[in-house]
Design a protein around this nucleic acid. Structure first.
Lengths: 199, 199
DNA sequence: AAAAAATTCCCCCTTTTGGTGGAAATGTAT
DNA sequence: ATACATTTCCACCAAAAGGGGGAATTTTTT
């Protein structure tokens, strides 16, 4: 287990202690410690928090799966963004359990992924389904750049200077984003972008 | 204890189980259940999550303290907004423990508040200090109303119509907020407002 | 009751944004 | 190679936002 919140760590420990067929091989407060330990011993499953002090769960998961493909990773997160869930699965995770999960969901997740199957906690799959129906149009690289500058309070002329392009170009990107998201103005665009974790 | 996340609940239970002088009198998944139980029995301390399914921690804390002033409330939250911490204390809470707290901080909090003192976990007091130095100017009621409408993508004329005031009035509020927060335009205002949990 | 703050409205003027409708030049994937 | 998407730019024009200043009225606080 990699989990930097002692409260959650203790909770999972307590839940797992009751299970005869599940044994906790070790606990780490950050990704570096885990990677070091994996050199000498690979567990069947790694429960991995996504908000670690030294690296993102995305990076840690990729690293672990590259070095030891046989190890199953179950992501553990308070983050319910469908985008993050999808990215974790692309990075090789086998399961995703939100921290509001019920006790049995943790043990269910472990037992499911060691069989080679995927597991999502109830609330995680809810979010995935919702994201499927109401997915947002993707932003291009350039649009994302412009969006960040807009959010920082820069005007089109200022952004144009920064990116070495014409004002009309920046304005095009801005207008394209408004159209993509179906919002009326920059204020609504920024709100949506932040709420959807785009910036 | 009032806590709707089973993982955290189990963690706290496990931590408290090791302490001879602390005894968990009961656990509830929502505020209503707690209030019902308090009619027949009042514990010394209530550990209270702020993100409950049926009511906000702010409301629950106020209700509990109004009905049973002798009970000490310790807020338990992933939320590190200084504003929320201050509001909880104003509503009668005795302590504030963030969910990234170390094990001993939970027990320390409980032992401290029963003595009538206040307790803040390390990270909570860090945030309080930071908020003291870099505090944001407060928004008035009207400004907050206008700000929400702006964030929803409404223009000054539209907001004016909604609030039955002149466009110039709405514009004044908008300009005042820009000046208060020292930002250049609406985009930066919205970003700041969301990041600071004002909307 | 007096002082302070909030809400309301006004002026003038410049800059920025947003709407419509293009089009050419790169990349990128099939 | 050939579609497709992205990035770049153009014109025109209306609407909205923002900067400067001022001022009257109502609420709230002291």
């Amino acid at each position: 287990m990699v989990e930097d919140h002692p409260l959650v760590k203790e909770g999972i420990m307590a839940i797992l202690a009751d299970e005869a067929d599940i044994n906790c091989a070790g606990h780490f407060y950050n990704g570096t410690d885990l990677l070091y330990r994996l050199k000498s011993f690979q567990p069947d499953v790694i429960l991995m928090d996504l908000d670690l002090p030294d690296m993102t769960g995305l990076d840690l998961c990729r690293k672990v799966k590259n070095l030891y493909p046989a190890v199953c990773v179950v992501a553990l997160s308070i983050n319910n963004q469908a985008g993050i869930i999808k990215k974790m699965m692309e990075n090789g995770a086998s399961g995703y359990v939100l921290k509001d999960a019920a006790q049995h969901e943790i043990t269910e997740a472990i037992r499911t992924v060691v069989k080679g199957k995927q597991y999502f906690s109830r609330s995680a799959s809810l979010y995935l389904r919702k994201a499927d129906t109401s997915q947002l149009p993707p932003l291009t690289r350039r649009e994302k750049q412009v969006l960040e500058k807009i959010a920082d309070g820069l005007t089109n002329p200022q952004i144009a200077e920064l990116l070495f392009v014409d004002v009309s170009t920046v304005n095009s990107h801005r207008k394209n984003m408004l159209a993509k998201f179906g919002v009326q103005n920059t204020a609504a665009l920024i709100k949506l972008a932040i709420k959807e974790n785009l910036i």
